[in-house]
């Protein structure tokens, strides 16, 4: 993935990000300077942040939908949720 060879023969998906990171690592004085680029690379690989964000958005939407549904059904359940 970071090698530059993509699965369909073109440039790999995360190649550019890895090259940025690598470039940074060759010039930086302490490795912690490049942590953000490294995070970007890992994000490209695993989409962990993206998925986490989607999950939170989805959860929030579900919560709101549930709340709306509860409001529609009656005030009693809403009270229970709040407590």
């Amino acid at each position: 993935m970071a090698s530059g060879f993509g699965i369909r023969g073109f440039r790999g998906r995360c190649y550019d990000l890895f090259m940025d990171f690598r470039e940074c690592m060759t010039h930086c004085t302490i490795p912690q300077d490049c942590t953000e680029l490294r995070e970007d690379y890992y994000e490209c690989l695993h989409h962990a942040k993206e998925l986490k964000r989607w999950y939170r958005i989805d959860k929030e939407r579900q919560r709101q939908e549930k709340e709306a549904a509860a409001k529609g059904a009656g005030g009693k359940e809403e009270e229970e949720h709040k407590s």
Binding site: M1, A2, S3, C14, F18, F21, R22, M25, P31, Q32, C34, T35, R38, E39, Y41, Y42, L45, H46, A48
Partner: peptide, 24 residues
């Protein structure tokens, strides 16, 4: 995503110390 020793080395070097995050 890499198998080269040097590239693995630079990835390991910037590991967020003390933060056990399996995805990074």
């Amino acid at each position: 995503g890499v198998t080269n020793f040097e590239e693995l080395g630079i990835l390991a070097l910037t590991r967020s110390w003390g933060v056990p995050d399996p995805s990074t």
